[in-house]
Design a protein around this nucleic acid. Structure first.
Lengths: 253, 253
DNA sequence: GAAATTATTTTCGATATTCGAAAGTTCAGG
DNA sequence: CCTGAACTTTCGAATATCGAAAATAATTTC
């Protein structure tokens, strides 16, 4: 009888399951023994999975853990209700302090998707309602995520045409790369009239345990009213919120 | 340049990501268009994924959703901290009401692994501390999960030898099958001195959106003290807790 | 209800990947 | 330095995958 589990795909998945089930990192030999594979085969399978970022190996060590792409996949499947319970209180805290709209965005393909939004009572119309796909080069929460992706991702993103939403939208490779560098240095991304006219927003990356950035948290408001707000305070509170959310959304790598 | 994403494994994963990112089920054509695949290729990839239970197709319809094996894999990558934020409040509620230990268990291989436990202050020694592997035939939270697995899983489980932990442990196929049927009818599983002597516990399956049961929630106490507690009340509160947890741990199918 | 359109499934030879076995490296302890 | 375990590479044979095209099924249109 030919078990469907000895097809190539099935073997890859069994390796993933083995690693995922382990509390701690597994070594090549662990995996080979567990699945009854010879070392050479296990090595090839693992390499394939690492190439796809489905497994990661803590640099320096020889043990493997679940990779960022698998974590992203998990988050992508989680229901919005799952996020709401975790993230809503944090967003509410931001709303209470600044009186502007706060939202949580998640990397989804080539966009940052808004997955949760909280507004002050009597808010303007929503610019970041859940489901909206925010461009990675022209939204604060998008830029905050893009700035912390690896070079291969950034290069791929920049290799494709980008839409210009307003006359202030940055579309040149160099402009965008410079801004990403600044975001990495500063910790916070700004989008001033680059996506929606008259709208100003701040975004902060959310780092989960492994250090990967899949989410960002942002505050958005009408530029005229929001601009005077003290920037250092916004930055500090966003950083706190991001740290809190990172813990709540986090994984043990 | 040969992108690692056009290797066979990468294409399978991209299909999974596409389906996972969609809020609703995707049809073959949707997937093919999204990924720029020709229909025949998409069909073969999808079929391979369905064979592995990584994708599922709602019976009758032609649209694909994430399958039970993918859900199990992704959940397995979540660690205790990830659960804590979601499930701790629910367990705390049970502890507050009954004054006994509550825990969340997850199907892991041929055992139900306790992944989170909450105890009343001044508790007895812990019988379900996180990490403990609870047998599927001799623990309330294990039986609650086993009762809702498909026939192939149950048959495979019963085809292998089972340990007898106490003289009350049920090990005969027929006894176990009868009890599983009763659990399906009743909704709640009981383990009375079958695993740890002097310990009584109740378990309730947790259904996530697709209907798959990967988790259960349970209450455990010393039999002498716990037995007098009103059973219907326990059952009702466990059902509520399970519904709540199912929402929080759930996926968009 | 027949024709046209769109969606799904199957077939095909060529190509690329995977397979297990065995040999070759690297690394850590004694 | 030697030894053994863990890790990595190599190899021809077996197998899965590839894109293109054709066949079937389901839906829509007229």
């Amino acid at each position: 009888m030919s078990d469907s589990n000895d097809k190539p795909l099935g073997r890859y998945i069994r390796v993933l399951e083995t690693v995922a089930a382990a509390r701690t990192g597994l070594t090549l030999t662990d995996i080979a023994r567990e699945l009854g594979l010879q070392p050479g085969t296990a090595h090839r399978l693992i390499r394939g999975l690492v190439d796809q970022d489905l497994l990661g190996s803590a640099p320096g060590t020889k043990s493997y853990v679940t990779g960022p792409r698998l974590q992203a996949l998990l988050h992508a499947t989680m229901d919005q209700a799952g996020y709401a319970g975790l993230a809503k209180p944090v967003l509410d805290g931001l709303v209470a302090e600044f009186g502007e709209t706060a939202h949580l965005a998640r990397l989804n393909g080539d966009f940052a998707e808004s997955v949760l939004m909280e507004q002050p009572s009597g808010a303007d119309r929503a610019f970041v309602q859940p489901g909206r796909q925010l461009p990675l080069h022209a939204a604060a929460s998008g830029k905050a995520i893009l700035a912390f992706q690896d070079e291969a991702f950034v290069a791929r993103y920049l290799s494709r045409p980008r839409e210009r939403y307003t006359e202030k939208t940055k579309v040149e490779d160099l402009d965008i790369r410079n801004e990403l560098a600044q975001i990495r240095a500063d910790g916070v991304a700004v989008c001033d009239n680059e996506l929606d006219a008259g709208v100003l927003s701040y975004g902060h990356p959310i780092q989960v345990n492994g250090g990967y950035v899949l989410y960002s948290v942002g505050i958005t408001g009408l530029a005229d009213r929001f601009r005077p707000m003290e920037r250092s305070r916004i930055k500090q509170r966003l950083a706190e919120a991001a740290a809190d959310l990172g813990r709540k959304l986090g994984f043990t790598a």
